[in-house]
Design a protein around this nucleic acid. Sequence first.
DNA 1: CGTGTACGTCATGTATACAATATGAGAGCG
DNA 2: CGCTCTCATATTGTATACATGACGTACACG
Lengths: 233, 233
Amino acid sequence: MTQPTGSGPKSAARKRPANRPGEAPVTARQRAYDGIRAGILKGAFPPGSFIEEAMACEATGVSRSPVREALNRLAAEGFLELHPRRGAMVRTLSAAELRDLHEVRQMIESQAIRLICRNRRPVPAQMSELCDTHEATSAGDLLACVEINRLFHQALVAAAGNTVLTQVFDSLQANLTRVAMLSLQLGIGKTRQIEQEHRALIAALQVFDETRAMEILAAHLKPMPRLMGSLSG
Amino acid sequence: MTQPTGSGPKSAARKRPANRPGEAPVTARQRAYDGIRAGILKGAFPPGSFIEEAMACEATGVSRSPVREALNRLAAEGFLELHPRRGAMVRTLSAAELRDLHEVRQMIESQAIRLICRNRRPVPAQMSELCDTHEATSAGDLLACVEINRLFHQALVAAAGNTVLTQVFDSLQANLTRVAMLSLQLGIGKTRQIEQEHRALIAALQVFDETRAMEILAAHLKPMPRLMGSLSG
DNA sequence: CGTGTACGTCATGTATACAATATGAGAGCG
DNA sequence: CGCTCTCATATTGTATACATGACGTACACG
């Protein structure tokens, strides 16, 4: 089977020989995006370092075209900082940016709660299910906990029914995920307590108690400034 | 002068032969982005239509690589909707999306006012200057008025000193610009009144009168729902 | 006459070749 | 010994060639 199809860069490790028809068409761009993103989150590409396109090509097994598109997308999401003619630098989160991010995040989730209560929007069952999943997940599995937490807050914002608000929140996910990872690694915020607070928030939202929900959210997000302190000094 | 330099697509109208050293390096990507963006705003690419890459190449005089990057960026900004293997469709703003956009915009600018007043942030001189410019601009020049208005609100949010908030607001600019254009075209919102409200807002912010500034903002953004009504029915 | 299938055409997705520029090292000079 | 200028090199920016999949059309069959 000497198929001379140009699929895959000349001599790179390609995980998939080709897209078999009828199968999920995993595009090269997606592989590049996933690979680079994972590398950043796992620390393979440390903050402040430059990701060279050739390096990313080798790591993901695709050519420069999809890699460039992935880098652009990651830059738009806040993972990278593009320097023309220089390359893509992994962004470092300064203490000031962390504070700003926290402020905006609180603003968005507060607005979501306001909309849910004011418009009597139903709380999606997914949120409760995520709490169950959270409970069943080992506290040691940081990645899983962070992902569940992410999905919970995403569902909260989505429940508000404002597509633009959801999009804006999603655009912060990149950096929020990195913060959450840091937070848990440093032992700030216990996963069990987080789960309890999530359940309390659901309870308040189900009866559209805006005031109470706001209080719970404020308490829930309170540990974040502690993280900033531990970074800056 | 048969220069076989590959600069410029084979036989497309190229506005710049090459980047002369020491001159502002206007990249092909930027030209593609500007050209397509202008085409969308001017209506050359009507909402709902598909922009084919070859078409965009011919219109902007660059090859597919920069065109694709421009299309991706425009999609990220909300101008386009990418359909894999189908192309890039110019997004249409539904009445619901307009409402959502308005809600989020108000949330962001309210937060900016809150931060300015709470943290006693100085009001940049640029904002007053923009009002002067606005006053000196013919009310008939819609494009200029929209641009001045955009810069004013951008400066307002920037004055809050939260970089993440600023970024988020910027990410809405694409659609906000389109809305503003529509709004003025339909005669909703008079430019003179807008300028007066801008000046009143500056006055309130200079003495950190949060309550008054909020009232002015609410009144200033009030006409927008009228626009939505005129679109949906 | 309607429907299903097969094929042709074309736009997108991907890979690679080419061009231009920034960076860094090294040689020459003050 | 330090500074500067020059040149080599490597990486990004751009163009183009190739592969793949989708859509439309035409033909054959029921």
